[in-house]
């Protein structure tokens, strides 16, 4: 039962991006079209599962004073494997994602979950938490990317959905969506929508992120 709760709360109620404001960099930067967003989500979920499991298994062995360095090293090893894997099997996507796969290391969701959850919980709970947070991240990333690709190019996964005006159709693509700043607007409006629907989530939601930062500052 507990495992199930760890799995479901991060999906919306404690969503890492819109509520805890963690892991934004990549969410904003790779959301221009759907395909890289899907690969990025898969990469983040696998790294998160690996790091939460490893940290949780080793939590009694890690000395308090150097735990952050150890956690970062575990995460970095996971990211290297994923990075090489993407380079080998999806070289085109790897070009598009450029440095952002490497930047999963500094994605605050991963260190945040390792620090805030896996250090105190067993492997099974930690895996559930990792999956929940990873999917919560993926939901936002994929919906932003789908919206941007559809509005900016009239396509989804490179398949034309809305016929473009250039090609004799009726849809005039919205160039704004192809620029990086549009991701901010979309997430801004998304947060507005979520908070208007669920009134409990006002700025109290800023707390967990601040907590992570303070915890790191305490080192």
């Amino acid at each position: 039962m507990n495992v199930f709760r760890h799995l479901t709360t991060p999906l919306l109620e404690q969503n890492p991006i819109t509520v805890q404001i963690l892991g934004l960099c990549s969410a904003l930067a790779v959301s221009r079209s759907l395909e890289p967003a899907l690969i990025m989500s898969a990469a983040v979920i696998s790294v998160l599962l690996f790091s939460n499991l490893a940290v949780s298994l080793m939590r009694h062995l890690m000395p308090q004073s150097i735990r952050l360095i150890l956690e970062v090293t575990i995460i970095a090893s996971g990211v290297i494997v994923v990075d090489e894997f993407i380079k080998a099997y999806a070289p085109d996507i790897s070009e598009v994602l450029s440095v952002f796969v490497g930047l999963i290391i500094t994605n605050c969701i991963i260190l945040g979950r390792a620090e805030a959850f896996a250090m105190q919980h067993g492997p099974l709970d930690s895996l559930a938490d990792a999956l929940g947070n990873g999917v919560g991240y993926a939901i936002i990333l994929i919906s932003v990317a789908a919206f941007r690709e559809l509005a900016g190019n009239g396509s989804l996964l490179d398949v034309q959905i809305l016929p473009l005006m250039d090609a004799g159709g009726w849809y005039r693509p919205n160039q704004l969506m192809l620029y990086a700043p549009s991701a901010f607007f979309i997430i801004g409006f998304l947060i507005w929508a979520i908070r208007s629907l669920r009134t409990g989530q006002s700025d109290a939601g800023m707390q967990p992120a601040a907590g992570t930062s303070e915890r790191i500052a305490d080192r």
Partner: peptide, 10 residues
């Protein structure tokens, strides 16, 4: 309401 804070920051 709802936009203040984080939403507006974005």
């Amino acid at each position: 309401a709802g936009l203040e804070g984080l939403g507006l920051a974005f």
